[in-house]
């Protein structure tokens, strides 16, 4: 099986979000970076599928040059190689799907090995548009199963399970297919030391991408075709609650029981 997993570099937010002066981005100067749990589960699923069926895993990321860091981290878990489509600014979903679709087609043509499965997170941690995977599927003419918390491949078919309350919906599609994953699909493994060492030598193909005509990131609107233009970001104000300190130990326990009684949750 040849699997492509799409991941996105996002800031590891602390307890408060600080915006840049122009209010169009998060100030990440003091933050670390990571990938979303949804995508960690996608990588883990790919590694498990290749352990079971054999094959190769390619990581694909659209993001800044620094995203090499996230690609190396994920390569340490088993994937074979990575492609970084370098884009400095935030790219909207329509353009992201177009760029990734073109890169996937070019890569399949170059290697002669078509992908059986393309995995993405159900939504990115930061922009959360819930659409890149589906747009990519349409771009590549493939079926899309989304939001899965269960995934299996057998007899040229992929089966995905989606959680609905405590029940599960089962979807099935012939390969090749696009599948978007959710946190909880599996428990992603931690990288091993040999894994990290091997990852350093794995190939990361860095490609400069021209933004497709019609959807330049951050360009002024007008005559550019339909698009969504980010105006500004707002951190919602949460009222400071001024918490009441219940003390410590047995005294705190007794006071907490009082609070519980007051709220009226005791049957």
């Amino acid at each position: 099986m040849n699997i492509c997993v799409c991941i996105k570099r996002v800031p590891l937010l602390g307890s408060a979000i600080v915006l840049t002066e122009d209010q169009r981005s998060i100030d990440t100067s003091r933050l670390g970076f990571t990938v979303s749990p949804h995508e960690e589960c996608a990588v883990e699923a790919a590694v498990q599928l290749v352990e079971e069926h054999g094959g190769t895993i390619t990581l694909l990321c659209l993001g800044p040059a620094a995203a090499v860091e996230q690609l190396r981290e994920q390569l340490a878990l088993g994937p074979d190689r990575a492609i970084l489509l370098e884009a400095a600014d935030e790219v909207e979903p329509q353009a992201t799907a177009a760029l990734m679709g073109a890169a996937i087609e070019a890569d399949m043509a170059a290697t002669g090995a078509p992908y059986d499965l393309i995995l993405l997170g159900s939504e990115s941690a930061d922009t959360a548009g819930y659409q890149t995977g589906i747009r990519l599927a349409h771009r590549l003419g493939l079926p899309a199963i989304t939001n899965v918390k269960g995934l299996a491949v057998a007899d040229g078919q992929v089966t995905g399970e989606r959680a609905v309350g405590s029940a599960r919906e089962v979807y099935r599609a012939p390969l090749p297919a696009v599948v978007t994953t959710k946190d909880g699909l599996n428990v992603p493994r931690y990288p091993s030391v040999p894994g990290r060492i091997k990852a350093r030598k794995k190939a990361i193909d860095i490609q400069q991408v021209p933004l497709p005509a019609g959807v330049p990131a951050g360009a002024p609107a007008g005559g550019m075709g339909p698009r969504m233009e980010k105006l500004r970001l707002i951190v919602p104000v949460s009222e400071a609650k001024g918490a009441q300190d219940l003390g410590t130990g047995d005294q705190a326990a007794a006071r907490l029981v009082e609070v519980i009684r007051q709220i009226g949750v005791l049957a």
Partner: peptide
Amino acid sequence: GQSEVTRARWGGNLLEEARVHAS
């Protein structure tokens, strides 16, 4: 020809104001 929306990012920890250029 265009609309304005406020939408949730980061699971609602951040809001985005955006202009959608579409009929």
